[in-house]
Computed example of a mutant assay.
Amino acid sequence: MPSMIDHIVIVDRDLGVLVEQARSVGFTVTPGGEHAGGMTHNALIAFQDGSYIELIAFIEPEKRSTHRWWSRLWKGGGLTDFALLCDDLAAEVAAINDRGLVVPEPEGNGRLRPDGERLEWQSSFPQPVVGETGMPFVIEDRTPRSLRVPHADDETTHANGVTGIAGITLVVEDSDSSALALGAITGNPVESVDTSAAGVLAAKRSAVGSQPGHWIVIAQPDVARVDDLNEGGLPAKYLEKYGHGPFSAVLTTGASPGSLAPTSGAEIDANLLAGSRLRIA
């Protein structure tokens, strides 16, 4: 089974703006580089728990693209996708298929770092285009992960105190059917949890990995509240605009991820980072 949340993805038109805004709220940002194919470039916010936030932008945002994140860019960008880490993707794909969810065979990708180091990895994407199911993709490094993910103390220490990702909340149309897909990917039980979050009818949660740690919550919004102007309308508005996907993420400053919930902590200004809903707990 996947061992952890590898990273979350924030997409916007201008990488420089994302970097500046991230630094303004206390994150240390490390230059990433240009991806294979030359369509996108990125910068990374790396954490002590080994996970990271990828800030990514299209080098030519006006140029139409078949990239799986391009359509989301034109809907407004923001928190767009996320990945789970494994050490044998071919075996993981077979296991996910055996658990009842058909996912594609691994495909390779890479990135050239500013220092000239070439990185390679492979991924399997359960949803060809973001918004279809909201399910995470699974990634395996072909070159050492330490080359892909910053890990030095000065790269993983942040003025805002964040030490890692606790969990991700996905907005989905039907929590029951999405629970089946999520359980097939994580290999862990998906159990009903408290639905006290505003605008949510039902919620289920799955751990990521065999040890207590990262979690994923799937939340089914009350679509009747789509026109509400308060917080209760936000999940339904997300579903209407973006489809299924990552609605929010909780970042920890040291608390065990298992002790935190989707509403834990204080939210970063949602006018920043292309509207990404990030909470620091």
Results as ranks from 00 to 15, higher is better:
Thr163Trp: 00
Asp176Lys: 15
Asp154Asn: 15
Glu173Pro: 00
Gly161Ile: 08
Gln220Glu: 15
Leu180Asp: 07
Asp153Arg: 13
Thr163Tyr: 02
Ala203Asp: 07
His214Asn: 15
Ala166Cys: 05
Asn160Lys: 14
Ala197Ile: 04
Ala159Met: 07
Ser192His: 03
Ser192Lys: 09
Arg142Ala: 12
Ala198Ser: 07
Ser196Gly: 14
Glu173Phe: 00
Val162Thr: 10
Leu170Lys: 00
Gly167Ser: 12
Arg145Val: 03
Ser146Thr: 15
Thr157Asn: 01
Ile168Ser: 05
Pro221Gln: 04
Glu191Leu: 12
Glu173Lys: 11
Ala197Thr: 08
Val200Gln: 01
Gly199Tyr: 00
Glu155Trp: 04
Asn160His: 14
Arg148Cys: 05
Ser177Ile: 11
Ser196Tyr: 08
Ala184Ser: 14
Val149Pro: 09
Ala152Asn: 10
Thr163Leu: 02
Asp154Ser: 11
His214Asp: 13
Ser192Trp: 01
Leu180Tyr: 07
Ala219Lys: 03
Asp153Cys: 02
Val223Thr: 14
Ala203Arg: 14
Gly167Glu: 03
Val172Asn: 02
Leu147Pro: 01
His158Glu: 05
Ile218Phe: 02
Thr169Pro: 03
Asn188Phe: 09
Ala179Trp: 01
Asp194Gly: 00
Val223Asn: 07
Lys204Trp: 01
Ala181Pro: 05
Gly167Phe: 06
Arg148Phe: 10
His158Ser: 09
Ile218Asn: 03
Arg145Met: 12
Ala224His: 11
Gly199Ser: 06
Ile168Ala: 05
Asn160Gly: 13
Gly187Ser: 10
Asp222Ile: 06
Gly183Arg: 06
Ala198Gly: 00
Val226Cys: 07
Val208Phe: 11
Val223Met: 15
Thr186Tyr: 09
Ala181Lys: 13
Lys204Tyr: 11
His151Pro: 01
Ala181Leu: 12
Ser175Thr: 08
Ala152Gly: 00
Gly199Arg: 01
Pro212Gly: 12
Gly161Arg: 08
Pro212Phe: 04
Leu147Cys: 13
His158Phe: 09
Leu201Tyr: 03
Gly209Ile: 10
Ala159His: 09
Pro189Thr: 09
Ala224Asn: 14
Ser210Met: 08
Val223Gln: 13
Glu173Leu: 08
Asp154Glu: 15
Thr195Glu: 12
Gly161Pro: 05
Trp215Leu: 05
Ala152Ile: 03
Gln211Phe: 06
Leu182Lys: 06
Gly213Asn: 12
Gly183Ser: 09
Val162Lys: 06
His214Met: 11
Val193Gly: 03
Ala207Lys: 09
Lys204Phe: 06
Ser146Arg: 15
Ala219Trp: 00
Pro150Thr: 09
Pro212Gln: 09
Lys204Pro: 03
Ser192Asn: 07
Thr195Gln: 10
Asn188Arg: 15
Asn160Leu: 13
Asp154Leu: 07
Ala152Met: 12
Ala219Met: 06
Gly209Gln: 14
Val193Arg: 02
His158Val: 08
Val190Lys: 04
Val172Gly: 03
Asp222Tyr: 02
Asp153Ser: 12
Ile185Glu: 02
Asn160Cys: 15
Gly187Cys: 08
Thr186His: 11
Val217Gln: 08
Val226Asp: 04
Gly199Met: 03
Arg205Phe: 02
Thr169Leu: 02
Val200Trp: 01
Asp222Pro: 05
Asn160Thr: 14
Ser210Ala: 15
Ala152Asp: 13
Ser175Ala: 15
Val190Met: 01
Ser210Lys: 14
Ala207Leu: 11
